[in-house]
Amino acid sequence: MAEQTGKPEDEAAARGKALYEYGPTSIYSAKHDPRFPYCLYVPPNLGKTGEKPELIVAMHGTGRGFTGYRDAFSAFARWNNCIILAPLFPIGVMGDGYRDGFKYMREGNLRYDHVLLAIVEEVCERYGIAFERFGLFGYSGGGHFAHRFLMLQPHRLWGVSIGAPGSVTLLDPTRDWWVGTRNFAELFGQELDIPAMRKVAVQMIVGAADLETWEITHKPGGRNWMPDANHAGATRPERLASLRDNFAENGIAARFDLVPNTPHDGQKVVPTVEDFFAGELKKLRSARKAA
């Protein structure tokens, strides 16, 4: 009789890991702060191709449909050897029902860029892969987050796709945050590093039919109101074009995709975002091989 080599408990652990930690994973609470869950898509053949995997973060919008974005990028992740991380920054983490905290990067004692980086480190530890830099996509409220994360943590990104933010922060030393960056160092304890931003591949994407303004027009008395809150334009395409032009003035190149016949729907722009990420992954991996 052949000797049994695997213990039942070891086999059960392996099956559990395959079921819950690969493919579309379960939802985890972040170790550093359990208020912030996340889920992943991890290719079942991770680490078996000989090519280093990469990480792409898909940030939800105001509706918090984080699993939907994870699933939307899953086929791309499988064929491009990437892990997809979809965090959830819930409404009202301070107990006040506020929806927009993550968009503006600071809420009470929270820094949402730090929350994301802690989750990324947790993913690195779980899968034994060091992701010094990663790709970031965000649409609508996630587009708010994505371009402001770029300002705060440019050295952690190899690419960022900024999708249809309702409001934009311009690199403007004459206006305060969030409209501009005059008090950036005072608020965040670091200087704005525009040379580092220039090294990150940037896509800006918005639907050509994304023209409703009811949700994005700031009015006096609103929680996010401040002078010049609407000065970047009336619609999302206008505001994103203002950000593109502002970046260009500061030497930051951006691919600008105005998607025809598309309203405010993040799922509809995913194929164009995948095209951007595929091109940047090819450059990243070619440069690594040439080094």
Rank of each mutant, 00 (worst) to 15 (best):
residue 116 L to W: 02
residue 128 G to Y: 07
residue 132 E to W: 06
residue 109 N to I: 13
residue 106 R to T: 13
residue 122 E to M: 05
residue 132 E to Y: 13
residue 126 R to A: 08
residue 118 A to S: 14
residue 130 A to S: 14
residue 122 E to I: 05
residue 127 Y to K: 04
residue 100 D to Q: 14
residue 115 V to G: 07
residue 110 L to N: 10
residue 127 Y to M: 04
residue 125 E to A: 15
residue 129 I to N: 00
residue 104 Y to C: 02
residue 119 I to R: 02
residue 102 F to D: 01
residue 126 R to G: 07
residue 115 V to N: 08
residue 117 L to R: 12
residue 104 Y to I: 10
residue 110 L to P: 07
residue 103 K to C: 11
residue 131 F to V: 01
residue 130 A to M: 12
residue 103 K to W: 03
residue 115 V to E: 11
residue 102 F to Q: 01
residue 134 F to W: 14
residue 116 L to G: 07
residue 112 Y to D: 01
residue 134 F to E: 04
residue 116 L to F: 05
residue 127 Y to R: 03
residue 124 C to Y: 01
residue 122 E to A: 05
residue 111 R to D: 15
residue 129 I to S: 02
residue 133 R to I: 04
residue 127 Y to P: 11
residue 120 V to I: 08
residue 133 R to F: 07
residue 129 I to W: 04
residue 121 E to F: 05
residue 106 R to I: 14
residue 128 G to A: 07
residue 102 F to V: 03
residue 124 C to W: 01
residue 117 L to T: 09
residue 115 V to Q: 12
residue 118 A to W: 11
residue 129 I to E: 02
residue 110 L to W: 12
residue 133 R to L: 06
residue 113 D to S: 09
residue 110 L to V: 09
residue 107 E to V: 00
residue 130 A to D: 14
residue 101 G to P: 00
residue 117 L to F: 05
residue 125 E to Y: 06
residue 107 E to L: 09
residue 108 G to A: 10
residue 113 D to W: 01
residue 129 I to R: 01
residue 119 I to C: 02
residue 102 F to C: 02
residue 108 G to R: 11
residue 105 M to K: 01
residue 99 R to L: 11
residue 133 R to P: 01
residue 113 D to C: 03
residue 114 H to M: 11
residue 125 E to F: 06
residue 120 V to S: 04
residue 121 E to L: 01
residue 132 E to P: 06
residue 120 V to M: 04
residue 126 R to Q: 15
residue 107 E to C: 00
residue 113 D to G: 05
residue 100 D to L: 13
residue 100 D to A: 13
residue 121 E to T: 11
residue 118 A to P: 07
residue 112 Y to T: 02
residue 111 R to Y: 15
residue 134 F to H: 09
residue 130 A to Y: 13
residue 100 D to S: 13
residue 102 F to M: 11
residue 112 Y to R: 04
residue 99 R to E: 09
residue 133 R to Y: 04
residue 124 C to V: 00
residue 106 R to N: 10
residue 119 I to K: 04
residue 100 D to P: 00
residue 101 G to A: 05
residue 122 E to W: 07
residue 102 F to G: 00
residue 109 N to M: 14
residue 120 V to T: 05
residue 100 D to V: 06
residue 102 F to K: 03
residue 121 E to Q: 14
